[in-house]
Amino acid sequence: MRKLMRVVSVATGIVAAAVVSISAPAMAAGGGGEIKQHEWTFDGPFGHFDKASLQRGFQVYREVCSSCHGIEFISFRNFADLGYSEAEIKAIAAEYEVTDGPNDEGEMFQRAAIPADRVPGPFPNENAARAANGGAYPVDLSLIVKARPDGANYVYSLLTSYAEAPSHMNVPDGMYYNKAYSGNLIAMPQPLYGDDITLANGGDTSPEALAADVVSFLAWASEPEMETRKRTGIAVMLFLFVMCFVSYGSMRYIWADVKKSKA
């Protein structure tokens, strides 16, 4: 038993050291990186998505973010996860146009989107996106929560940390001061001021609430399988715990007749 404990503590030590070395944030030269910690419904082993929040978040994305940011790995049919019915999804899709073709004349053409289509982005390619945004690329948001350390809190902080630059700092034209962004200067203007969208069923439209809703939506977009993953995980862990006990019992039963005299 002592040997086992030693092995486990050594293994833990190694993994801990490795993990610490990866997860320690690399502090940016020049400031930034102030990340607020927000409590999310999807945190922890029992995490879940609040569908109402996801729908509000989608609305924020549509009306505010989608003018610049794409969400290329999401298809309209995925919105069933948000609680929309098949008819509602068809209607949402029909409001968008996608490129199809070539037709019999050899030309590409526009048609209304169907649920099977991906959500079209605002720009046809990265170069067009940069050209329209002074050389800066508004990143695709499909994976943003997984693509940043502590992603949900990071995006939330980014959206709610615009501030007046300190007097000594010169903010060039086209840049904005943000306390969360590495280096403090970001090319994206503040997207949320509060009441940026009208909620059909009423609700909190403060910038913090809207930011939290859109972050929930983006967390879903990055990890739509999250709820299934955690639910399955709980079942698997319970099964394995029982297996550990039962296999230990078998082992002790089988080994009962071995006279061991260990030094």
């Binding site: 995980g233 862990m237 394995l240 550990c244 296999s247 230990y248 078998s250 082992m251 080994w255």
Partner: peptide, 20 residues
């Protein structure tokens, strides 16, 4: 039997990483 027990402990730790 001892390897089976060891495997179950290993899988428990492994599963906690994969799922959570």
């Amino acid at each position: 039997s001892k390897d089976l027990f060891g495997a179950m402990v290993f899988l428990t730790i492994f599963a906690s990483a994969i799922f959570f």
